[in-house]
């Protein structure tokens, strides 16, 4: 029905060029031999070598990965619960407030979230560091998980659950054996979203963090303020590569799962 018209092709191509060109240029210039970042001095991987010898950056990367892993995991559990609460329980006291608290962090300026969390940590006398950054990241990423999982839950066929319960499965068992497998792809992409948001975050981490818990974006930011350096280009390229690999693997796995499901369905139909 729909075909490519010239206008559509041009607008899509220009749009994607705008989205991707800066990143591509950054990656190309990370292989630049010259110390002057904008002058091409030949191909080289020397900045990657420098990068791995930079202990400060490596420590920060390790902190970031740990914070990301822990916070994404906790945020996925909390966010999934929040999504269930929003879709399954249409009526409970304070539902309006609850849905407000789930959606507001999505658009809340990071400076406000960061400042308010910091003041909370100070008020309760919590020492700022690894633990507080993790708490802060759980809080703002769980809302993104909730939105992703909620979207899946809304298109979920409730009759499957009802059938399971009619056959005598208790609700908790129904959840784990029927609901969870169906919404699992959404939960996984929610985890990945939470993980990358945590890896990326500069502003909230700067407020919530303390001595000894410098994350990679904080480290990169402090160097970037002084100007563009090839070493940071290399660090950014590696981060992009890690994320791109993750997204690629996830989409391949999803595709396989989809193909498998279709095959199962066809097999079931033939049997039936």
């Amino acid at each position: 029905m729909s075909t490519w018209t010239r206008f559509n092709i041009v607008s899509v191509v220009l749009g994607f060029a705008f989205l991707y060109l800066p990143i591509v240029l950054l990656i190309i210039y990370s292989f630049n031999d010259s110390k002057l970042v904008t002058v091409w001095g030949g191909f080289s991987t020397r900045w990657y070598g420098e990068l791995f010898r930079n202990q400060g950056l490596m420590d920060a990367a390790w902190v970031t990965l740990r914070v990301g892993f822990i916070s994404a995991t906790v945020a996925t559990v909390l966010g999934t619960l929040a999504a269930l609460a929003l879709t399954r329980y249409t009526r409970f006291r304070g539902r309006v407030l609850f849905s407000g608290m789930v959606f507001a962090p999505l658009v809340m300026p990071e400076v406000i979230t960061g400042l308010s969390l910091l003041l909370l940590f100070v008020a309760v006398g919590l020492d700022r560091g690894f633990f507080t950054v993790t708490l802060a990241h759980i809080t703002f990423t769980m809302c993104f998980v909730a939105v992703v999982v909620q979207a899946r839950l809304m298109s979920f066929d409730r009759s499957l659950e009802e059938a399971a319960m009619d056959l005598g499965a208790p609700p908790v068992k129904t959840f784990f054996q029927v609901t969870l497998p169906v919404i699992l792809p959404a939960i996984i992409s929610g985890w990945m979203l939470a993980f990358t948001l945590s890896l990326d975050d500069l502003v909230i981490a700067s407020f919530a963090s303390g001595p000894g818990a410098t994350t990679l974006p904080m480290k990169i930011y402090s160097q970037v303020r002084l100007g563009v350096t090839p070493e940071i280009n290399a660090a950014c390229t590696l981060m992009i590569a890690v994320v791109a690999a993750g997204v690629l693997i996830a989409s391949v796995v999803n595709k396989r799962r989809e193909v498998q499901r279709q095959r199962d369905e066809q097999a079931a139909l033939r049997l039936g």
Partner: peptide, 26 residues
Amino acid sequence: LVILPFWTSFLIRVYAWMGILKPEGL
């Protein structure tokens, strides 16, 4: 393809423009 850049760091994407826009930039 639209979602993919969203997965790369915000800081990196802003930083990429520094190299493009500065007076001796690309």
